[in-house]
């Protein structure tokens, strides 16, 4: 496979490299913003499961436009793993299921709460769809749980979901915390992918709700099997977002895009650090040398 073939196969992969984003997912947040204007007036934002950091990059670029004084903008990126540093982004290497992490975030905001919380985290998929969907929903709920500690009333929460067989359960849970919940699919997310994003607006926790980390938030369950199929299921509002003139992630584009005269191959902006298979790769590499 030539090194340009990935550029040809995926327009957003290529654009991300050309525009200096660490991952193509940067475009997803940008397109969600185009539709919902989620960055409007936002000065304090939290990026959960931030590595490799493309959403933090977007936040730092976009939020600076909201103020004359760059120091007003506070962005906190949380991830279990270390990620390469980004200017203007405070990194917390921590677990989002711990109160200490929530406190650290609030400390960073000098006691104030966040205007916006985003989460683009996804587990390594196993290939068994129901497990992947469950784990993804738990990740989202863990993100929601810490969000209830750090998000101001009226704030916005954006997170990745998998639209699998039980997405209605997750949706009904989110509806308890936010006035508006929409499932949204940016143009830069592939048509064939089950990935989508929930855009939750106007944070209004149920009356008397006290945020706690002691018990994890669980997604809802079917109260009885009559809700399982048929017309009594929750309706999940769906919205496609992104400008229609934007590139389409399923389309194959030539290397010379319309209006371009030259093409230059670019290396990825940030390569992965410390994957779990690192050791085994090194071991097999040594084995081959010893052969």
């Amino acid at each position: 496979m030539g090194k340009t073939s990935k550029d040809k196969r995926d327009i957003y992969y290529r654009l991300a490299k050309e525009e200096g984003w660490r991952a193509r997912s940067a475009f997803k947040l940008l397109q969600i913003n185009e539709e919902y204007d989620i960055f409007k007036g936002v000065l304090r934002a939290v990026d959960l499961c931030a590595a490799p950091g493309s959403w933090s990059q977007v936040l730092s670029k976009k939020l600076r436009q909201n103020t004359d004084n760059v120091d007003d903008v506070k962005i906190v990126a949380v991830d279990l793993q270390a990620m390469a540093a980004l200017p203007g982004v405070k990194q917390i290497q921590g677990d989002i299921t711990k109160v200490s992490t929530a406190n650290e975030i609030i400390q960073e905001f000098e006691g104030s709460k966040a205007d916006l919380v985003v989460c683009d985290g996804a587990p390594d998929v196993t290939g068994l769809h129901d497990i992947d969907e469950y784990i993804q929903s738990q990740l989202l709920l863990a993100a929601l749980n810490i969000t209830t500690h750090v998000l101001k009333d009226g704030g916005v929460f954006v997170a990745k979901i998998f639209r699998g067989k039980d997405v209605t359960l997750l949706y009904s849970q989110l509806k308890q915390f936010f006035e508006y919940v929409t499932v949204s699919k940016p143009q830069s997310s592939r048509n064939s992918s089950i990935e989508a994003f929930v855009v939750c607006q106007n944070y209004t926790p149920p009356p008397g709700y006290t945020p706690t980390m002691a018990n994890p938030l669980l997604d809802h369950k079917y109260c009885d099997f009559n809700e399982f199929t048929g017309v009594n299921r929750f309706i999940v509002p769906f919205n496609a977002c992104g400008d229609l003139s934007a590139y389409d992630s399923d389309t194959s584009y030539p290397l010379l895009l319309e209006g371009q005269t030259t093409y230059e191959y670019k290396e990825p902006v940030q390569s992965p650090i410390n994957p779990p298979y690192k050791e085994v790769l090194e071991m097999t590499k040594n084995l081959q040398i010893n052969k």
């Binding site: 030539g2 040809k8 194959s252 290397l255 010379l256």
Partner: peptide
């Protein structure tokens, strides 16, 4: 040889 092949600017379609 692959070295001498010019970059093909058109995508391989699916």
């Amino acid at each position: 040889s692959w070295r001498n092949c010019a970059v093909d600017f058109n995508p391989e379609t699916r």
